[in-house]
Nucleic acid binder design. Sequence first.
DNA 1: CAAAATAATTAGACACTGCTCAATTAGCCA
DNA 2: TGGCTAATTGAGCAGTGTCTAATTATTTTG
Lengths: 175, 175
Amino acid sequence: MEETGFAGFSAREVARRIGYSIGTIYNVFESLDHLLIAINGRTFELWTDYLAERIAEGGGDRIQSLVEAYFGFARDHPKLWMAIYDHRLPPGMFMPDRDMEKRRALTRIVFHEIARQLPDCADSEVEHLARSLIATVHGHCTYELNGSFALMGEKHPTAMALNRVREAIASAGRS
Amino acid sequence: MEETGFAGFSAREVARRIGYSIGTIYNVFESLDHLLIAINGRTFELWTDYLAERIAEGGGDRIQSLVEAYFGFARDHPKLWMAIYDHRLPPGMFMPDRDMEKRRALTRIVFHEIARQLPDCADSEVEHLARSLIATVHGHCTYELNGSFALMGEKHPTAMALNRVREAIASAGRS
DNA sequence: CAAAATAATTAGACACTGCTCAATTAGCCA
DNA sequence: TGGCTAATTGAGCAGTGTCTAATTATTTTG
């Protein structure tokens, strides 16, 4: 996935590269969707670890570390990161809870960091804000990776995302 | 595209539905990517018209109209809207300028509305902010349409996006 | 009006895809 | 060694994007 990207990914190519036949792939994974869920689940784990490390090792500004690590992972593994959002489950199919949990783990990191910035804020309020800020940074990161920002001449997507996050936290702190 | 969505879209199915053979499709469009560019270009025109209408006909709060119309179009045509971002050009292929212009037209609407809110702000500053706010709202809209927000129990994505936009404009107005 | 030239359209072929399943092979245990 | 189970295979099905030689329509010209 890291080499071919989502569009170029195929079960047959996987089989070729690991030296097995297609049949074996389909004995291990119920369908291509299940294989993709497994791959993206692993990506989420890598990403979560990456975030936790960067926040711990970063300087005092944990929010900056968080936003920059969010972008950093995506930039380091663009095809892996995009595959997460390229893969859409067919209608009626649902993600196993084990994989859902991997995604929630990342959300929890963000929640925890925002709660830290807003000690007087109710948890439900922080959850709200965390979801919104994830969407905000995600939007910036998407435009960065798909080249839209470069095309528009935008040179500091990370800084912009950080600004939006700072404003939102400051605004929540005032009220 | 509106019926099948990006994943279920195929040139052969288009040919079947319009009563022509696949060959004819490929005589009119250089490749499937070119057909997709044409479809997404049309979607951008529809979207831009939709935004302009809603802002003009909406009440006095033009920013609210803008954000709600952004979401409104995506909700009214989810598969059409998602196809815009599902389609990734193969490396080395570039979008014709005619289609790029259709995308810029939408950006210009946002730019114009933000400039209106910040009459004392330099154009370059407004451009910056417009790009960031598009990314912000885009992120929220993506999470809404792909079901992430529903899964997290988030019930007011549009209102959240509007809050982020308001904060950013207020912050830019203060400095 | 007929013939020639141009334009539009077709369907088959190629290499690829996800997926299934009867047949085969490998590993293990008595 | 024989028997049983688990792992593995690859041909086959229906679908895909893409190309192209052949065919059919249409228009222009003599």
